[in-house]
């Protein structure tokens, strides 16, 4: 609909009060990525404090958080959690390189599948690009290895978050994401996730697990 486009743009050109700036300003604003005010809680903390805040905020938002010393503890943590939630020991695990050396066979009975998520999946495990301490928010960047739907279809979403990927603020997470992408475009889906799915649409009663996961379990792995 070229004519609608022309019509709208011509009209905007006519009615906009350009006391603020022209297009040069708009371009520089985009290329400079100027940040707005960042809350002190997102900027003024040391790395250990950021991890501590991430854990606290994520739990306030209803997530369950486990701090692991090494990636070797993942299978036992996953199994214990599945058992606690009375879920079958089946997990859809993403093809992220970080899981490559996980020895799932340590846990007999645990069944691991890779590939795209299926409607019948009850639990999934994928890797986060970042964690943001400010609000305990995970930043998930979609890719062939980490499909976005891992975070939405199953009843339980488990996420591995290297402690080194915890940042103070959203802005720091964007910087990290741009570095990670290099010249590539924005990941197709960037999901910022703060706690498990919920609704309060029935008489303002807060309930978890509206359409997405009823439980969000985060494993923070130190060291790496």
């Amino acid at each position: 609909m070229t004519d609608a486009r022309t019509h709208i743009l011509a009209k905007l050109e006519r009615v906009i009060d350009r006391k603020d700036a022209g297009s040069a300003d708009a371009d520089s604003r985009i290329s400079l990525h100027i940040a707005g005010p960042i809350p002190r809680r997102g900027t003024d903390e040391t790395k250990p404090e950021q991890t501590e805040r991430f854990v606290r905020e994520a739990m306030l938002a209803g997530a369950d958080v486990h701090e692991l010393i090494s990636i070797e503890q993942v299978p036992v943590t996953v199994v214990a959690y599945l058992r606690a939630k009375n879920l079958p020991l089946n997990v859809r695990v993403s093809a992220d390189g970080i899981f490559e050396n996980v020895r799932w066979n340590q846990e007999p009975g645990l069944e691991i599948e890779n590939g795209g998520v299926e409607a019948t999946d009850t639990a999934s495990l994928s890797a986060a690009a970042s964690g943001v301490a400010e609000t305990g928010t995970l930043v998930m960047a979609s890719s062939p290895e980490n499909p976005a739907m891992y975070g939405f279809v199953p009843l339980l979403h488990m996420v591995l978050l290297p402690e080194s990927c915890i940042h103070g603020s959203y802005e720091d997470a964007w910087i990290a994401l741009r570095q990670r992408q290099g010249n590539l475009a924005m990941p197709r889906m960037v999901n910022m996730i703060t706690g498990p799915s919920r609704t309060a649409d029935i008489e303002q009663t807060l309930l978890m697990g509206a359409h997405g996961p009823q439980n969000l379990m985060i494993m923070i792995v130190g060291g790496t």
């Binding site: 979609s142 475009a185 889906m189 999901n191 703060t194």
Partner: peptide, 24 residues
């Protein structure tokens, strides 16, 4: 809006499914 620090899901979606993507 709801008094949450952040809503649970904030999604930035950019374009259709890409080569090798498993969903989208």
């Amino acid at each position: 809006a709801t008094g949450q620090e952040m809503s649970v899901y904030t999604t930035f979606a950019t374009g259709p499914k890409r080569t090798d993507d498993l969903d989208g």
